[in-house]
């Protein structure tokens, strides 16, 4: 079942569906985010700012990376604007800091999203995106699971994008 009922608990629903794509979201309080990222990241790691009070990147993740750091990195850490429970999807927004390339180029993408920002279904997601895209000429990627291809004769995870995705849900 991937269609949400409005009453379904957002996190459980999201976690269950993301699980079908091999993602095991972790629910963490704000002050443990840095530590959890540090544990999950493979080095070298780069990241873009996490825009919530009291939520930070660990020292081990290079904030404000250079082009070279991005190219060398094995992990990219970014915020996700919100998540879609019924599809297990994350909505990644583009920004000046470079969240789009940071979430895309590395083997491992660690995405951080707030639990309050889990919407139940695609209708709610698109409603939320409509105003953003219109007003701010902004862009977004609805990302579900790691990148994948079946073009080489069998399903392979990790095509041009990340091979693995970790999700931290901030309580």
């Amino acid at each position: 079942m991937t269609q949400a009922t409005p009453t379904a608990d957002g996190y459980d629903r999201f976690a269950a569906v993301a699980g079908e794509y091999g993602i095991e979201p972790k629910r963490v309080p704000p002050d443990e985010v840095a530590e959890t990222i540090d544990e999950l990241a493979t080095q070298p790691a780069v990241g873009t700012p996490l825009p919530w009070d009291g939520v930070t990147l660990p020292e081990s993740v290079t904030a404000e990376p250079t082009m070279g750091a991005l190219e060398e990195a094995s992990t990219g850490v970014t915020a996700a604007s919100f998540a879609v429970a019924s599809y297990g999807s994350l909505v990644l927004e583009t920004d000046h800091a470079g969240s789009e390339p940071v979430s895309l180029f590395n083997d491992l993408h660690i995405a951080v999203v707030r639990e309050d920002d889990i919407v139940p279904d695609m209708a709610a997601a698109i409603d939320r995106l409509g105003d953003d895209l219109r007003a701010g000429r902004s862009s977004a990627v609805i990302a579900t699971g790691p990148s994948a291809t079946a073009d080489m004769g069998a399903l392979v995870q990790g095509a041009h994008g990340p091979r693995r995705v970790e999700v931290l849900v901030v309580t």
Partner: peptide, 28 residues
């Protein structure tokens, strides 16, 4: 149910271009 990426790009993108030939340049 959904493909890995549904990109909703509103170009020109408000996001840095990527140039690995300039390794010391900041990405942002």
């Amino acid at each position: 149910d959904i493909t890995s990426y549904v990109s909703l790009f509103t170009p020109p993108l408000d996001s840095p271009t990527v140039d690995f030939d300039e390794p010391t340049e900041p990405l942002a």
